[in-house]
Amino acid sequence: MNFFEFLISRWPTILSLTLEHLFIVFIAMVISVTVGVAVGILITKNQMAARIVLNVTNILMTIPSLALFSLLIPVLGIGKIPAIVGLVAYTQLPIVRNVYTGIMTINPAILEAARGMGLTEKKIMRTIRIPLALPAMMSGIRTATVMGIGIGAIAGYIGAGGLGVYIFQGISRSSDQMVIVGAVLISVISILTDQFLGGVQRKLNR
């Protein structure tokens, strides 16, 4: 049985695993972006908080993903919930960091003009800092999402489903084709998502 015959014969399973994968990553990214953007904005108000949060998210990302997911099992059990929690934790760093630096690295002349003209700090945040930080924020979201799609494979290991299931089953059954299908589809989804978000980012840059 060649690769394409395999793909066609297992089509319904592959499709449902793909959708499941997309679903997990999508939910995780919605939460991650919401939390990450909020945290990134909040910590611009306090240097101490910023240092702590950036260090914590940094550490989170250095934990091997497999270990992070395994550590969540005793707390949250297995299934989609720990998978989503793990993905959220794992993808915080690029989002929080980019939101934070985007907001903090606005040209000082622009901020001085805004203050001198009589805009309040709140207004400056809303009408100057955040709009100008959007391209940087988007770049963080893009990195995080592509990471999330890849790491989402490991969710299969803790019973959350998704294309990771095919990879792990393929390994235990020594089926190269299953591993390849899982890996290739994850790559394709990553590339397409990256392209799409890159387009959005370029639009924001103008």
């Binding site: 002349a109 622009i110 003009a113 805004a114 001198g116 003209m117 009589g118």
Partner: peptide, 12 residues
């Protein structure tokens, strides 16, 4: 008070 600086500080 109108305020003008060398870098203009126009909002890009």
């Amino acid at each position: 008070i109108g305020y003008i600086i060398q870098d203009t500080g126009l909002f890009p």
